[in-house]
């Protein structure tokens, strides 16, 4: 499903050059729930942004669903993000002017679904994440945990092949965080491939496999289950 070879990412400014990923090799199987852990600044999020096509690696190879991604145009990358990938961000990343349902609908509308079809799917997805009665609420009218559920509903509404989650529980209290991670577990049980960045050990145990990043390299991996 995901194959990464010798991935390098360097951030350059006028005077400095920071090597964040130093040749990462990684394979993720279809249906796998992978956790990426590491200390702050280890390159966890950077690795996820490269795999999720939100950023361009300096060098190396990323193959997603059998497709080489280095040669993809900007439009192809956007289309691939729209059709095959889903994202859950640490700060929920909901559009403030859109209701929970509308936030969930946008990717579906962009994929060409009618307003009715997109609305039906969004309603089902929001029900799936436990927000059946909050679909007409704006993000500002929802708690952090509820906003993250909307974010998950949006990420899975178009049935992506891979779901990326960047520290999805970091801004939540323990109860909400646990609820979110259990939601991921449910999705995983349904066959969803998930790549999740986290720094919390208690949530890493829900993953099939965890890779540990240190100073831009995978130094170890383990299977918590």
């Amino acid at each position: 499903m995901i194959s990464i070879k010798n991935l390098v990412k360097t951030y350059k400014t006028k005077h400095t050059e920071t090597l964040v990923l130093r040749g990462v090799d990684l394979e993720v199987k279809e249906g796998e729930f992978l956790g990426i852990m590491g200390k702050s600044g280890a390159g966890k999020s950077t690795l996820m942004y490269q795999i999720g096509l939100l950023d361009h690696p300096t060098s190396g190879e990323i193959i997603l669903n059998g497709k080489q991604t280095e040669q993809l145009t900007q439009n192809d990358r956007t289309l691939m993000r729209l059709s095959e990938l889903g994202y859950v961000f640490q700060d929920y990343a909901l559009i403030p002017e859109l209701t929970a349902k509308e936030n969930t609908m946008i990717p579906l509308l962009m994929q060409g679904l009618s307003r009715e079809e997109a609305g039906d799917i969004s309603t089902r997805m929001l029900a799936k994440v436990g927000l059946a009665n909050r679909e007409n609420n704006l993000p500002s009218q929802l708690s952090g945990g509820e906003q993250q559920r909307v974010s998950i509903a949006r990420a899975i509404a178009h049935n992506p092949k891979i779901l990326f989650a960047d520290e999805p529980t970091a801004n939540l209290d323990s109860v909400s965080g646990k609820a979110i991670i259990e939601l991921f577990e449910t999705l995983h049980a349904d066959g969803q491939t998930i790549v999740m960045v986290t720094h919390e050990e208690e949530y890493a145990k829900y993953c099939d496999r965890v890779v540990y990043l240190e100073d831009g390299k995978i130094t170890r991996e383990f299977k918590p289950k």
Binding site: L54, L82, A93, R154
Partner: peptide
Amino acid sequence: RKYIGIMKGIGISSKA
């Protein structure tokens, strides 16, 4: 800008 980035991130076309 952040929300524009998010929309682009989840696959909404720049043109839209």
